[in-house]
Amino acid sequence: MSKFSDKINAIEVDPEILEEVLGRISELAPEDRGFVGSSITAVHVVNDLGLPDGERQDMCLALNFRLRALAKLISENGAAGWTMPGADGATFIHQEVIERAASQPLCEEGEDLFFDPEEFSAGLLLNTEIGGSA
């Protein structure tokens, strides 16, 4: 029997869509940034894409689980050095974290879907361009 995470991981999420959802969530009042507010925001963004019904539902589902996994990762310090606290409880997130969150496979334990912090960090380091000079 296939895991639920297999279905969610099979849905391709464009990092630009995830970034758009995060940007719109950041514009909400702090008390509206929870599960309901972020879910409604994801639905609005996905509706604007003009996808067929089935694809629209799948994309909303994938975005919601990726948002929840990202929030959990950040709250447990799994993206330390890649985020910065902002005003009103917002968090600034480095672009590479958003890109990784759009593609990193979700893990499943019981009814919980999450990003493996070690795999997430390793993927960030592997796929991030080094800047600066010596």
Rank of each mutant, 00 (worst) to 15 (best):
2 S>R: 14
3 K>H: 14
3 K>R: 15
3 K>C: 05
4 F>E: 08
6 D>H: 15
7 K>W: 14
8 I>Q: 12
9 N>C: 04
11 I>C: 02
11 I>R: 06
12 E>Q: 10
13 V>I: 11
17 I>F: 04
17 I>W: 09
18 L>W: 09
19 E>W: 04
19 E>R: 14
20 E>Y: 05
21 V>N: 02
21 V>T: 05
22 L>A: 02
23 G>S: 11
23 G>R: 12
23 G>V: 00
25 I>W: 03
25 I>P: 00
27 E>L: 15
30 P>I: 05
31 E>N: 06
32 D>N: 13
35 F>I: 08
35 F>W: 10
35 F>M: 09
36 V>L: 08
36 V>H: 10
36 V>S: 08
37 G>A: 08
38 S>W: 04
38 S>N: 01
38 S>H: 00
39 S>A: 11
39 S>M: 10
40 I>A: 10
41 T>L: 00
42 A>C: 04
42 A>D: 06
43 V>H: 02
43 V>G: 01
43 V>P: 00
43 V>F: 03
46 V>A: 02
46 V>S: 07
47 N>Y: 09
50 G>M: 02
52 P>K: 01
53 D>T: 13
53 D>S: 11
54 G>P: 10
55 E>Q: 15
56 R>T: 03
56 R>C: 05
56 R>F: 00
57 Q>N: 11
57 Q>E: 11
62 A>S: 13
63 L>V: 04
63 L>N: 10
68 R>I: 07
68 R>L: 07
69 A>H: 10
69 A>M: 07
71 A>K: 11
72 K>Y: 07
74 I>D: 06
75 S>T: 02
75 S>W: 03
75 S>C: 01
76 E>D: 11
76 E>T: 13
77 N>H: 13
78 G>H: 03
79 A>N: 02
80 A>I: 04
80 A>D: 11
80 A>V: 06
80 A>H: 08
81 G>I: 03
81 G>C: 01
81 G>V: 03
83 T>P: 09
84 M>T: 04
86 G>H: 02
86 G>T: 00
88 D>E: 15
89 G>K: 08
90 A>Q: 10
91 T>P: 03
92 F>G: 11
92 F>E: 03
93 I>R: 02
93 I>E: 01
94 H>Q: 09
94 H>F: 04
96 E>M: 10
97 V>T: 01
98 I>Q: 06
99 E>D: 09
100 R>P: 00
100 R>M: 15
101 A>E: 08
101 A>K: 07
102 A>H: 05
103 S>A: 14
103 S>W: 08
104 Q>E: 15
105 P>W: 10
105 P>L: 02
106 L>Y: 08
106 L>E: 08
107 C>T: 06
109 E>Q: 15
110 G>A: 03
110 G>Q: 04
110 G>N: 08
110 G>H: 10
110 G>L: 05
111 E>A: 15
111 E>Y: 14
111 E>K: 14
112 D>R: 13
113 L>I: 06
115 F>M: 05
116 D>P: 09
117 P>E: 04
117 P>I: 01
118 E>N: 05
118 E>I: 07
121 S>C: 00
121 S>K: 13
122 A>N: 13
123 G>K: 07
125 L>D: 00
125 L>C: 03
126 L>K: 15
126 L>M: 12
128 T>L: 09
128 T>I: 02
130 I>C: 07
131 G>R: 15
133 S>A: 15
133 S>M: 12
